[in-house]
Every structure is written in structure tokens, then in C-alpha cells.
Computed example of a mutant assay.
Amino acid sequence: MTGKTPLLYLNNGVEMPALGIGVYQSAPEETAAAVETALRGGYRLIDTAAAYGNEEQVGEGIRRSGVHRGEVFVTTKLWLSDYGYISALKACETSLDKLGLEYLDLYLLHQPAPLEPEPWIAAYKAAEKLLADGRVRAIGVSNHTAGILNTLMEQTDIVPAVNQVELHPYFVQNQLREVHQKFGITTQAWSPIGGITRYWAQAPNGGRSALEEPAVLELAEKYGKTAAQVVLRWHLERGVCAIPKSVKAHRIAENFDVFDFTLTPDEVAAIDALDTGLRSGPDPEVIKLDTFGTR
């Protein structure tokens, strides 16, 4: 896999770019252009999900970009309404059809369902089958806490390659990252710039923006970068894969322009110190199959 992005090596040897673009809340009519722009600009990781309703447009953007399929790392996710063994296998094929792809690079369970474990565990076992059959190159999870991860791993055979979780300067997830390191799980950050604290009305940190914090702004001035670029660089320094979302061409380019400077350990620690320990997204411990309704 080529491109400007540094690579992270998953626990099964698969290479994953350390920075990508996410398409959560990207309207279908804007998604194809955003993906095409990102790929033409050097991105090589695209993150989507069945629940986002834009897999077809992601596939269209990949094809329009002219970038060879083998150079693009594509992630999608299984929604709770498709949990269960057979239903998960079918849902993956549906996602592949919508994307217009023969295989996925990474397939994730979108949420845990610890209060209804049987379909959740069965869905992961289906992901293991998809891996064995070559339909996916790596499997993992999203929004799983340390305790939920342990429950999953006790009942399945393959350690997740990735756990995609809420992670930003107000919620740095150090304890979870230590668990990930123990088991060789790669940490991937959704809402890496902390957008959830601005758009999620129930967020404990609601109304705050990490991009306005003095610790971030001082580094932006020092390095001649934007606050968002500093925060994305902070993720890279910590070995975290970040997938910022944007449909605006200038923001897509800005978010990728983070490979020409580095932060010192003290500067990383200064951003770490913004941690509140407060999750802004849903609590994974209480999620049930019908928590979010059907997709």
C-alpha cells in the first residue's frame, strides 16, 4: 500500500494507513465527491458503515478516483439489526455489493450488545468466518470498552485487530489503550478532533472545543498549523489511527497535511492533560440491539 500516510501493522500483519477519512453524517450526494477528493489527495483509508447509508457512494468515489483498489483500505461496519450468525454473513455481502467490492480490508461490529450477548457474539463469529473465507482481510470492533472486549474474547477465537472508539483530547482513553497494547489491538479514533462535543447535545463536555484550548492553539502558532492539524498530529504521535470526517475539499486537504511536523513528548503530554475522562457518545455498557432503532 502506497501513499503519503504512515502505516500501522495490525495483529494479523495487515497494513493499515494511520490516517483516513470518515463519512459519518456525510450526505449520500456529497460522499462520492469527498471520497474521490480524498483519494486523489493522497488518502488511502476510507471508513464507512452500513448504518451511514452511503456505502454505494463510497464505492462510486473509489472508482471515480482512479486509484487502484489494492491501494485503498476500505472499512465498513455491521449494524446491530444484523447481529446473529447468518444475518451477519448476509449483511456483509450486502455491504460488499453496495460498495462494488470483492473484499473488505476491515470489517467491524459497529457496537457491542453486552445486555444481549448471544447475537453479538454470533455476529463476531460470522466475522471470523468471513476472515477465513477471504471476504475480509481483518476484523475488529467499535465502541467496545475493556470489560466488553474481555467478554468478547473469552467466547471467540480471534483477537480483534482494531477497536474504533471515541477518542479526542477531552477523552484520551489511556486505560483502554493499555488493554489494546496488551492484546495487540490497534486503537482507531472516531471524532478525533472532538466534534462530538460540539454536535452532541447530551455531551458532558458540550459547548467546549478542543480546537479552542490554549494548549492546542499555542502549538498551532508554533508550528504554523491549524488547531485541527495539531490534534491530528497528536493522534499520530500516540500511535492512534484517526479518521476525521469532512466533505469540504479544503478541509480534506488540511486534515491530511500533518506529516511535515512532529510534536515533542512534552507537547503530547500537554494535550493529554486536557482529558476530562468523560465520554460524550453513548455508553457502550447499556447498549441493546434496539437502542438506536433500525438503520
Score class of each variant (00 low, 15 high):
273 A>R: 12
160 P>E: 07
118 E>A: 10
123 A>Y: 02
151 T>D: 15
244 P>D: 08
263 L>K: 06
35 V>I: 15
290 D>I: 12
171 F>M: 01
285 E>H: 12
233 R>C: 14
61 G>C: 05
71 E>P: 11
184 G>P: 09
291 T>E: 12
6 P>R: 13
51 A>S: 13
140 G>F: 01
75 T>P: 07
191 S>P: 05
150 N>H: 13
3 G>K: 00
140 G>M: 04
107 Y>D: 04
77 K>F: 06
172 V>W: 11
84 G>K: 02
110 H>L: 05
251 R>Y: 12
137 R>A: 09
107 Y>S: 00
280 S>D: 08
289 L>V: 11
70 G>Y: 10
281 G>F: 14
41 G>N: 07
34 A>Y: 01
121 I>D: 10
222 K>W: 01
99 L>W: 03
291 T>V: 14
99 L>C: 02
170 Y>G: 02
268 V>N: 02
210 A>D: 02
242 A>M: 04
162 V>N: 15
141 V>G: 06
96 L>Q: 00
9 Y>T: 14
158 I>W: 15
62 I>A: 15
85 Y>V: 01
65 S>D: 10
218 E>V: 13
127 A>W: 02
98 K>Y: 05
75 T>W: 05
180 H>V: 00
55 E>D: 09
101 L>P: 07
35 V>F: 01
240 V>N: 14
189 A>C: 14
201 A>H: 14
3 G>A: 07
69 R>M: 10
175 Q>F: 12
126 A>K: 03
88 A>C: 02
44 R>N: 12
228 A>K: 01
229 Q>L: 09
62 I>M: 07
258 V>K: 03
270 A>Y: 10
239 G>C: 04
232 L>E: 01
39 L>W: 00
164 Q>W: 11
268 V>L: 14
244 P>H: 02
232 L>M: 03
129 K>Y: 08
273 A>E: 11
213 E>H: 09
9 Y>C: 14
265 P>F: 09
76 T>Y: 01
280 S>Q: 08
44 R>D: 08
88 A>D: 03
246 S>M: 02
189 A>K: 00
156 T>Q: 06
87 S>E: 15
213 E>T: 04
187 T>M: 03
173 Q>V: 01
69 R>C: 05
9 Y>H: 07
17 P>S: 15
188 Q>P: 13
179 V>P: 13
16 M>R: 14
145 T>E: 04
123 A>R: 00
190 W>M: 15
221 E>M: 10
279 R>D: 10
179 V>C: 09
204 P>G: 01
238 R>T: 02
